[in-house]
Write a protein that binds this DNA or RNA. Structure first.
Lengths: 243, 243
DNA sequence: CGCGTTCTTGACTGCTTTCAAAGATGGTGG
DNA sequence: CCACCATCTTTGAAAGCAGTCAAGAACGCG
């Protein structure tokens, strides 16, 4: 793990992910391609959306990582969720006008407007499924924090993040970028950075992970999975199940 | 706290809550009244929606408490969120066909179909705001589990639940029904029932709460609030902010 | 090459869990 | 009306996981 910004993600992350979620036709793909000409960049650490700010439009992440966070009065921070390339951000179902959490760029982030979807189109289905997946991940985060110990939280989160990256066509079978510092991981998993450090060391000792300079590797993903009873999200075109 | 089912909630909980969220006109109120003739009852402990089950329709809770939960392979359970009278359940934004968690009745629960809202109507706004509030509470739950200790989690959750009940016109200034057992509270807050018991005892000793047979009382709500830096959700007709 | 950030390490504290068992409590049937 | 039962609450002692504090090493950047 390091502070190195994630390599420029394949610009295809957005159409790849949405295509797998909804099945995009030529019109949808053209709309996405058009939207990706109207990009906005946020340097790492920049706050992209302030908590309570009005949400003007739904946007999509073209490349880079970001996260939603909340700061408590004692200065501690909880990272609610991590946003990856291909994810939608600020999606207001109808006209929810206010962001419940602030969004901060973790690496340099490129976003574009999320094109308006024709009702019934593949893009429309993709948006709906993406929202459902987001909610699923939020409930998974609750379960992780409420019921898993440190090693379980780390392992479960890494597995989920690996799957999410692969859905967007990023990362390999057993390798993927991991630009979070140990302190960020701690803030996401409800731990301290010291304990995250010790937990990662234990996982390295047990040959569960290899981590170096922003790249994470699973030497044996299956072993990790049944260590934490990991339930991947199955995405089936326009359906979703946690088998 | 006890096992006693919550008293039959005022049947007005649903129109009260949605009215405060969206401002209902005569047509909306009539639609709600009509919907409340088509009720369905779930006895306490009955599973209302299985995890992964297809969501056929959006329903509303007329009376009673329920909760969304997830069971882990080791038998432990995490309560994701509690559903109160006036809440909407199984709200699929577009056509998310699958429940990400199971829903279980905590007390005897009465539900009715959530009437279809005319776009732009008060009911439509209420649904949108309700979804936004749900998401806000989910992020609050993540923060609670990730960053607060036992007493903070209990206090924060009690305050939030009190506010939610009052939004639906239930409970008083400093008193409200609390039908959860200590074990359920533990499963919601990521603790053990033994520790919840000790925490509640400490809060009683400090005169922060009075709890007996299903009724909770705050002798001094303000003191509780600044003990945990509680941020209530302000609902302003068709807006929402966490001031 | 120097500096700031991030990662490591050690010792110590303490919150929370675990295990087990003894009281309450409320509802039920006799 | 009372005994009985299941469920829920309470208690104690001991163990463990995670947090705190502090300081040094390593890394990446300019």
């Amino acid at each position: 793990m390091s502070t190195a910004p994630a390599r420029a993600a394949a610009p295809a992350a957005l159409p790849t992910r949405l295509g797998r979620l909804g099945g995009l036709d030529a019109a949808d793909l053209a709309a996405l391609a058009r939207a990706q000409h109207d990009t906005r960049r946020s340097p790492a650490r920049r706050e992209m959306i302030a908590e309570g700010a009005a949400l003007r439009e739904r946007r999509a992440i073209v490349s880079g990582w970001a996260f939603r966070q909340r700061i408590l009065s004692d200065g501690s921070r909880q990272i609610i969720s991590v946003l990856l390339p291909g994810d939608l951000v600020g999606v207001c179902r109808h006209d929810n006008p206010v962001a419940p959490t602030s969004v901060v760029a973790l690496t340099d982030v490129v976003t574009c407007p999320a094109p308006v979807a024709t009702p019934g189109s593949g893009l429309d289905r993709a948006y709906a499924l993406s929202a459902a997946i987001d909610e699923f991940h939020l409930t998974a985060q609750v379960t992780r924090l409420g019921r898993l110990n440190a090693i379980g939280r780390v392992a479960d989160w890494l597995l989920e993040t690996h799957d999410r990256l692969r859905l967007a066509g990023l990362g390999g079978e057993e390798t993927f970028p991991m630009p979070l510092t140990q302190e960020m991981l701690a803030d996401a998993l409800g731990l301290t950075s010291v304990h995250v450090n010790r937990t990662l060391q234990a996982m390295r000792r047990d040959e569960l992970i290899h981590a170096r300079s922003g790249v994470m590797t699973f030497p044996n993903r299956a072993r990790l999975e049944d260590m934490v009873d990991y339930r991947p999200v199955r995405v089936t075109s326009n359906n979703l199940m946690s088998a």
